[in-house]
């Protein structure tokens, strides 16, 4: 399949991840949705690299930095979720509302 096939899969994966982020009540499930969205972004980058600039190395550097950000995001996000669980005794995102005016 050509470029459009990969981009379509990436767009669908991103939409599914967004749906998870919006609808899930469990904070860890929200983080799973964010992981799906980051995967879609990396897939998009590599599809463009393969079909538009296959000899360039810059897109791969972008994807490597994106992977690093995704790993840091997962570690920090889960640590924050554990803290919320400790402070509120709940893991639902709509019950951690102390900053709400």
């Amino acid at each position: 399949m050509g470029l459009t096939g990969f981009l379509t899969i990436s767009a669908l994966l991103f939409a599914v991840g967004t749906y998870g982020v919006i609808t899930r009540r469990n904070a860890i499930a929200v983080l799973m949705g964010i992981e799906l969205m980051l995967n879609a972004a990396n897939l998009n980058f590599l599809a463009f690299w393969r079909f538009l600039h296959p000899v360039a190395v810059e897109p791969q550097v972008f994807v490597l930095v994106g992977l690093t950000v995704a790993a840091a995001d997962a570690a920090i996000g889960l640590a924050v979720v554990l803290n919320i669980y400790r402070d509120f005794g709940a893991i639902e995102v709509d019950r951690a509302d102390s900053l709400k005016g």
Binding site: R25, N26, I28, L31, E35, A74, A75, L78, A90, I91
Partner: peptide, 17 residues
């Protein structure tokens, strides 16, 4: 790595919901 991290967090917040 990330999958193991997520599963660890799930086990640490067991039955939170």
């Amino acid at each position: 790595a990330i999958l193991v991290l997520v599963l660890f967090a799930l086990m640490l917040t067991r039955n939170a919901m």
